[in-house]
């Protein structure tokens, strides 16, 4: 009799375990559902108007803004990451890491407003430069954190070994650690570009708009993000196709860079 009671209790616990597993699978399904819905909606509604001149121009503008911002943010981001790893454990480095974390989570809209105050208002025009600076301000902490993670976790032994046999710090970083990390760093920079492409708010007040192509770095530049946002804000169903085409272009752009980064990371890990 007692055995039966025990067996029933075990059975109950097993059933409960199964129910809970099912519940968690449901949660996983809910997590991924929006992704599939977005992909389907954007592809289905956007592909017809994807290959138009205005989408191409805006895509070119997006590429210009992102590329120009990388010119600034990569050296500073990687340098900052090197500092954080080299000085790891000291109070100063901890403070700096907090500042970087704080900045990378700061509402990106505020960065756009700050750049507006510094660049757009004095120059009296939104411009490619201002948009790039806004994106760069966002990217520096991100790249720094990625660099630090990669540097400190993966090459610490090699780096310490180099120091132990008498290399200078400069040699240990530039001859040993950085060459080992060339690929992961490129991947990290691509990841951060993908994240920058996802940001619209910092461009809102800085990059400008218009529908023309590049007219120089001090002139407004059309970008996919702003075009999609501007058209969508009118909420006119007649513009929906156009909006979706822009969104599809932006998504493809982002995903291509993201996949490239993943591929580099994967090929490096092997």
């Amino acid at each position: 009799m007692k055995e039966e009671v025990l067996l029933a209790a075990i059975q109950r616990r097993k059933v409960r375990d199964r129910w809970f597993t099912g519940f968690l699978m449901g949660m996983g399904f809910f997590t991924l559902l929006p992704l599939f819905m977005i992909m389907i909606a954007v592809l289905w509604n956007g592909w017809r108007q994807l290959f138009t001149l205005s989408v191409a121009l805006a895509a070119a503008g997006t590429a210009e803004v992102t590329a120009l911002s990388l010119v600034v943010s990569v050296p500073f981001g990687v340098g900052l990451g090197l500092y954080l790893c080299d000085d790891r454990g000291t109070a100063t480095a901890n403070v700096i890491r907090h500042v970087a974390n704080f900045l990378s989570g700061l509402p990106s809209l505020l960065i756009g407003m700050a750049v507006y105050e510094w660049l757009v208002a004095p120059m009296e025009s939104r411009s490619l430069v201002a948009g790039s600076v806004a994106l760069a301000v966002m990217a520096v902490p991100y790249i720094a954190r990625e660099t630090e993670n990669k540097l400190c976790s993966r090459t610490a032994w090699f780096h310490d070994g180099a120091l132990a046999i008498g290399a200078s710090r400069y040699q240990a970083w530039t001859r040993i650690a950085l060459p080992l990390l060339a690929r992961p760093l490129v991947a990290a920079i691509l990841f951060s570009s993908a994240h920058m492409l996802g940001e619209t708010a910092p461009l809102l007040f800085t990059a400008g708009g218009g529908r023309s192509a590049l007219r120089g770095v001090f002139a407004p530049v059309p970008t996919l993000q702003l075009r999609v946002y501007g058209d969508a804000l009118t909420a006119r169903p007649s513009l929906a196709g156009q909006v979706y085409a822009g969104a599809l272009g932006l998504t493809i752009f982002t995903l291509v860079i993201f996949m490239l980064a993943k591929w580099i990371e994967y090929s490096d890990a092997r």
């Binding site: 992704l35 999609v228 969104a247 998504t251």
Partner: peptide, 18 residues
Amino acid sequence: DVMSVIPSVVYGVWGLFA
């Protein structure tokens, strides 16, 4: 990971139209 790089404006468009 893919979800985390989808641009915010695309989420907005999806929310608005779909």
